[in-house]
Computed example of a mutant assay.
Amino acid sequence: MANIRQAYPNRFLLANRGLFLYNPDLSSYAYNLRGLIDFALFESYRLDSSSGQWFNEAFFNDNKYNYAQKLLAEADREDGFRVLSLGYAEGPGGDLAKKALDGEQNEAADILNADIREAAELGMVHYISDALVKSVNSYTIDHRDSEPKPPAWGSTLTPPWGKPIAEPRAGIQNIVVRGKEVYVQWDVAHSSARPVTYTLYMKEDQNFDFSQDLKTQAVRAVALHPGVPADYAGPGDRTKRYPYEDKVTGLTSGKTYYFVIRAQNAAGQSDANENALKIAAP
């Protein structure tokens, strides 16, 4: 991929699946394609090309709550990429699904519409075709929500295989002190209007009043850079491991600070989590 990027610096490059390259549980994470590709395609995110069933729930849960979380965490880094997704109008009602794809209103349309919603919820650019990918259509554009919603938090905590995550990890998750340096860590958030960015709000001496605008209370509001923590990659428990960290500067030694991290989408909408952590600056 590096050779292709070097040979064609002005072309768009798309990588199909290869989800293991973005999963920090696996040794293949060392060969992450971030910085080399423009798009990653999540083929068969929910609806696959099988004629025996609409989708496999366990595989879909693994896609949604495990691989997609980690993939999108990579996508929103500063050298990231856009994630596309592809579903198939096949399954046990394949003929009905293809007719729905062509505009017929039938019971398969609900299956296709759910596919669109599931992908949009995470901010992937979705498309639905047939198993041979011959169907060129505007179905997803015609049936997607026109207005984005504020970001919703996800989690890169690895769930049991085929199971959903227990709960999202909203806002700031950890503060790390390394000598005199302070770092904040957080997890990924999702919105149909990607990319999602993150802002750190800092207040001295007392916690935020969440009934008021954070911007009027904060001594500073800082746009965060989603760096990779040193312990993010590697097998093992992810309970206290997160995809993002950034260094906090400008603190006065001995003063107490409260930190809040909120997510913003490309439409300018912000989440409203009230998770705050406190630190005495070293």
Rank of each mutant, 00 (worst) to 15 (best):
D213K: 02
I165H: 03
P195H: 12
N265M: 04
Q105G: 08
N23F: 03
I279V: 15
W153N: 03
L277P: 05
D237A: 12
R11Y: 07
P195C: 14
L122S: 03
A15S: 07
L96D: 10
V248C: 11
F81D: 01
K255F: 04
G234M: 14
D142A: 15
P151M: 11
H143M: 12
V184P: 00
V228F: 09
A233W: 14
A7G: 03
D79P: 00
S27I: 15
A108Y: 05
R178M: 04
V125R: 04
G87E: 02
I128V: 14
A114D: 15
A276K: 12
F20Y: 06
D246K: 04
A97W: 00
T252V: 13
P150K: 05
S192M: 11
H126P: 12
W153R: 01
M1Q: 08
N207M: 09
D48F: 01
F59M: 12
L112Q: 09
V188N: 00
R178H: 00
V182N: 01
Y244S: 01
P159Q: 02
A223Q: 10
N275H: 09
Q6N: 09
D115R: 08
L47C: 06
L112I: 13
V248M: 10
G171P: 07
V222E: 09
L277A: 08
L101P: 10
R169T: 01
P9A: 14
D48A: 01
D271R: 00
S50K: 02
T216K: 04
D246S: 15
K149E: 10
P282E: 13
Q212D: 06
R11W: 05
Q105V: 11
D110H: 09
K134R: 13
P229S: 00
N113F: 14
D115W: 00
D48T: 02
R241G: 10
F42W: 05
E204M: 14
D95L: 12
R238V: 08
Y242H: 08
N56V: 10
T256F: 03
Y242F: 15
R262M: 04
R82D: 01
P160W: 01
E118F: 04
L84C: 11
V228I: 13
D25E: 13
V133C: 15
W161I: 10
I4Q: 09
L13V: 12
A73T: 02
Y242G: 03
P148R: 07
E57T: 12
A109V: 13
G227K: 06
A2T: 09
P159Y: 02
S51G: 07
S135M: 05
I172R: 01
D130G: 14
F81Q: 01
A166H: 09
E90V: 07
A223I: 01
